[in-house]
Structure formats: C-alpha cells, structure tokens
Nucleic acid binder design. Structure first.
Lengths: 234, 234
DNA sequence: CGCGTTTTTGATCTAACTCAAGCTTTGTGG
DNA sequence: CCACAAAGCTTGAGTTAGATCAAAAACGCG
C-alpha cells in the first residue's frame, strides 16, 4: 500500500498530530474490537484491510463491509460507545483512533465536515449493499462486488484491472449473502466468458465494461411493483 | 401520534427555536425529496411516517427504511448535499429541517452528541436489515419486521401489541426483499399459528414471545462457515 | 512431505418466485 | 346511495435460482 496517499486521506479529517498519537499496526487475524466492547472513538484505516461483521448467537457471521484505506470503523458505537460489530484484520493494517472527544469537541484539528462526508458515503454504500442483497441474482452481486473493489483500487491510485483481494471466498460469500460454492461457480462463469481472469485471490478484470453491464443489469426484479407515488412535490 | 413525546424527541437534538422555524406538514403521497435533489440539511420526522427508498433505472424500488417519529432522513446527503434516495410520505407527517450549517456550526442549540447517537442507531438498524436480507427465511424476515415495528411503537409510548402499519403489503415486500405474495402467505401462516391477528393494515400481536422466537431463530444459515479468527486481541 | 485450509465441481433438493385468478376494500361519479 | 373501477390482498399451481450435500483437487505452511 502507498503510504503517501494514505497519509493524505487521514489528514483530510484530522490534523496530523491527532493521527500520529493514536496509530497502531495490526496483523492478519488480529481483532480490533468485538461486539459489546467499549470503544473510545472511531477508527480510521490508513493501510491494509479490515473486515467488519456481526455474529449471531449461533455463530454465523454477516459481513457488513470490508474496510480499506480511508474508511471509518466503529461508527455504530458513536452513541453509547458500545460496539455492535466485530472487526478483524485481513491484511496487515495501520489504523488510527479518532477519540470520540475529538469528534464532539470541535477542535481546530478536526474537520467535522469531512467526517460527516465519510459517514454519508458509508451510508450510501450500505444502502447499495442492501439493495444488492435484496433483489439481485448471484451473478450480479459478484459483478457488483468486483466493480466496487475495482473502483476502490482506482480511487487509491492503484490498478483497477489487476489486484489481489484481501479476503477469501467464504468472506465474499458472507458479504454477498451467497453460499461459497455459488461465489466459486459465478466467478468461474465470468472467467469462461472472458470477463475476468482469476487465480485464487489474484483477480484480473479483462473487460470492465461488460462487468459493469452485468452489475447494473436491468433485471433487478420485475417482481413487486411500486405504488405510484408521483403526486405533489414539497 | 402523540405530540408531547414527539416534541421531546426533537428537543433532544435541537433547541425548539431551530425546530419551530423549519417545520412543515406533508400529506400522504407527498414527495419530501428525490434522488439527485439538493438538500439543505437533514430532516427529522416529528410525526407520521415516511418511506425512504432508492430506485433503479428500470423503475424498481428498494425500501431502505420506514422513518417514524424521531428518525432522521437524508443522512446520505450530509457530504455533498445531494440526495441518493427518495422520500415519500406514507402517513400525514410533520417534519423539520435541521440545516447542514446548524450541524456543522456547533451552536449552543444543537446537540452534536445526540445527533451522532441517532446516526449510530440508524447505522445499527441498517446492519440488522442487511443481515435479515442476506441470510434469513421469509418467515423470519416478516417476524423481525413486526418485532421491530412493535418495539418502535413501545418506544413512542404506544401499544406494542396492537397497531396500524402505515405501509401496504408491497412496501413491506420491497423492504424485506420478498415478493408480495410471500409476505401475504407468511402473514397468513402467523395468523393460523395464533401468533398474530390481521385485518389489512390493522395488526394485533397475540404472542410476542413466540414472534420474537421466530425472529431470532437459530436457523440463520448453517451455510458458509466463518474463518477461525480468534487470535491475538489488540 | 503431510496435513489442514481453501477452492472447485457435480448432483440433488427446496424455499421462494412467477404466473394466474379471484376476492375485498376504497374511491369516484352519476 | 349505488355501480363501477382501480387498488390492494390472498390463494393455488408450477418453475427455478441458488442452497445443500458430497467429494475431489489445489494450495501453503510447518
């Protein structure tokens, strides 16, 4: 990962002095926090990858999102400071803590607008994720996942066509609400179509346009028709 | 809806003077805003019900959540002020605008902590919704929906056992990622089991415990097994 | 090299969708 | 106030996408 761009991402929210004093490095498999933990603030991922997930009593997990450089973690605890999710490091990561007091105390070093902006972006992603889970075919979910990852790469100045994903197949499955076997099969299909090339976690996108087309397919769900809403406009 | 409690909810975030000057009443079918609109802030629902949803090019909609008294709307636009969602009134509603400038300018009348708290709660709900969409049976999704609605009623000082839901079946279907027919069938099943009683939008929960049991059933998905994560703890 | 983990492929099964149709409720105009 | 139309809800029958079960192949670390 590129340290220069990571540093810039952090700076946009916090003054360097805030970041520097609260940074730590975690390794693959490390738990950043788990459900029920008391958190002192919100974490920002500077490098590496962290998976954020919820677990049920029965031990099943649902992956909420994969946090990459620039992403915030632990937002759900902003209220009472108690985390409702678990965070595990997938790839050696550098994360910094933004204390809740910093967020609320409007010191000069903290950019509340940029912070709100990140929250809004995060919520937007969650909505899209939710849309994918509710009304899309397995093939489309996977295509969307790859497109999103590719976009993320591009936004971090890395190659949007060739990358190594930090998660294993079952993580992808858990994120997309599919069985591992389905993820494997759909990925195989994309390969046969010449749209991507894969070798375990090494992914190469050969035809971004076609992949985008699949991810945006207009076959979302000709099921339930919406109520006609178009009446007066406030 | 109970005006006294609604007022109290608003007051916890904004000083009354802020709320009073930005309040308006909207009727069923009214559009509060739609995707692409420029918003001047975040809306708070004081009474009534508003549905928040995204639409795809093909006209399908995905309902993100139903906003009830005390809920915030338009959080996704906190960054650039552009809404990524549509908001339509289901039940005559009183909403007030919290200008973005109020949020960012830390005036005495604005409680940033309470605001963050609401954001955190909202994110928690979204995660739960997402979990339901990804790994649960139709029956469990519906049970969860009813439980959540019931909890909301209780938190607003209304009956948790008997209420009139503000949305039609297809809205519930769109929210839960199911076909209308499935919602209808599952609701019929709950009735046959003596757990609820229904008459169109009038719902009576006869056995809250059993409904909760269904909504929390431990059959979430014995599908994909999670990677063993339990290693070092930060 | 050997063993546990991850990935893949094949065969079967099932929950929920789709299609179709009837019924109930609500709203509108005469 | 009734008739009719539109919207909403329900039930039945058949189909299917993706889950589950089973097992083999590929990887990678000690």
């Amino acid at each position: 990962m590129n340290n220069v761009s990571n540093y810039q991402i952090s700076k946009s929210i916090c003054h360097p002095s805030i970041v520097d004093t609260n940074t730590s490095v975690l390794h693959e498999g490390d738990l950043l926090f788990r459900m029920g933990d008391k958190l002192d603030g919100v974490y920002m991922v500077n490098s590496g990858a962290v998976k954020l997930f919820a677990t049920t009593e029965s031990g099943d997990e649902h992956i909420i999102r994969f946090c990459m450089p620039g992403d915030l973690l632990g937002l759900g605890s902003l209220g009472d400071g108690i985390s409702r999710t678990n965070a595990v490091v997938l790839d050696i990561a550098n994360v910094s803590l933004i204390p809740i007091s910093t967020v609320l105390s409007r010191s000069d070093g903290f950019n509340l607008g940029a912070f709100m902006d990140k929250i809004a972006t995060t919520m937007g992603h969650e909505s899209e994720h939710s849309l994918m889970l509710s009304r899309c075919t397995a093939g489309r979910r996977l295509a969307w996942f790859l497109m999103e990852f590719s976009r993320g790469q591009a936004s971090r100045g890395l190659s949007p066509n060739k990358f190594i994903v930090p998660m294993i197949r079952s993580d992808i499955a858990l994120f997309l609400g599919l069985a591992v076997e389905t993820v494997s099969r759909e990925l195989a299909r994309l390969c046969k179509q010449g749209i991507v090339k894969k070798n375990l976690r090494h992914i190469e996108i050969l035809d971004l346009d076609r992949l985008r087309a699949i991810s945006e397919a207009e076959d979302v769900a000709p099921k339930t028709k919406a109520r006609s809403n178009s009446s007066s406009y406030h």
